[in-house]
Design a binder for these strands. Structure first.
Lengths: 153, 153
DNA sequence: CAATTGTGGACATTAGATATCCACAATTGT
DNA sequence: ACAATTGTGGATATCTAATGTCCACAATTG
């Protein structure tokens, strides 16, 4: 029932990018350091996000990563599916392909209900909801951080 | 985000026991065969359920396992906690013990919401909900034994 | 006593997540 | 053109947790 670190890394990185001043890019090293994630591993995570269309990468000097969409338009469900593929709780979520016991499997209903719930939350939560500066509805924890927008330069 | 096979095995076994005529016990081998779960592994699962108080075990000839409560009084949450411990999605669910970044962790809210949702479903789903309702349609679990497969009715 | 059935824990295996490495391509300043 | 920088791609390694196996033993019953 655990979410993978990979997924967590991805979210944190996206949040990091979302905090940057408009149009600015952050390099791998900066993201990695800010979150104590191994650079070489984070590189892999970022590639996924690039391929997934959420992030743009710039090569060469002063290169780095930046968001490709507004934080409001990036949902956790998108991130999840890019990083982990389709959301599922058991192997045999939908079909009896791999399960000889599928016929009359009474658990299937529960798994589906679970997925609907989780998927719903993921779909309704956007990157914007994860930004600290918004004191509104979904971010109750008060943040005492200052100068979070200092990157690169 | 996957549920463990162990958890699934536990549920299936409990459902199997719930289908037995009142007061009857099923031995390890029977449960194992009915679900193609390795006996020696299932033994371990069953021990958890016994220690967890959901199941009684009887040693010696004609021994086996039987439910200790009514299916209506066994929730999936109980089963989950017995098998896997407290429900959590990330290491640092509640405290900053292991996380230097906890202060200002905006994801925590989402993880909590997730847990509430899943926990809710688990708490409201009982073993009884997993028993085949209509003897005519959804019953047939592929069990080779004689009269076991029929519940209630 | 002998047969059966579950218990307990040590151990082995496997699969997937996590991490590392290195050669290379793209970009930019000099 | 060249050197420095920055991300890319993929092969490989490591680590961990889940899953599975084994065996000696305790309890029960005929």
């Amino acid at each position: 029932m655990q979410l993978s670190k990979t997924f967590d890394y991805a979210i944190r990185s996206l949040v990091y990018l979302a905090k940057l001043p408009q149009g600015q890019a952050a390099e791998l090293r900066a993201i990695s350091l800010s979150q104590s994630v191994p650079m070489s591993y984070l590189a892999k995570v970022m590639r996924h996000l690039v391929r997934g269309g959420l992030v743009t990468s710039i090569l060469g000097r002063d290169g780095g990563y930046s968001l490709r969409k507004s934080p409001r338009d990036i949902t956790l469900l998108q991130v999840y599916e890019i990083m982990e593929g389709e959301l599922r709780f058991v192997e045999c979520m939908e079909s009896d392909r791999n399960c000889s016991l599928f016929n009359g499997c009474t658990q299937a209903t529960v798994w589906r209900r679970l997925r609907q719930a989780v998927e719903g939350i993921f779909r309704e939560t956007t990157l914007e909801d994860l930004l600290p500066k918004n004191p509104g509805e979904s971010v109750p924890t008060p943040i005492k951080e200052s100068g979070y927008a200092r990157a690169g330069a």
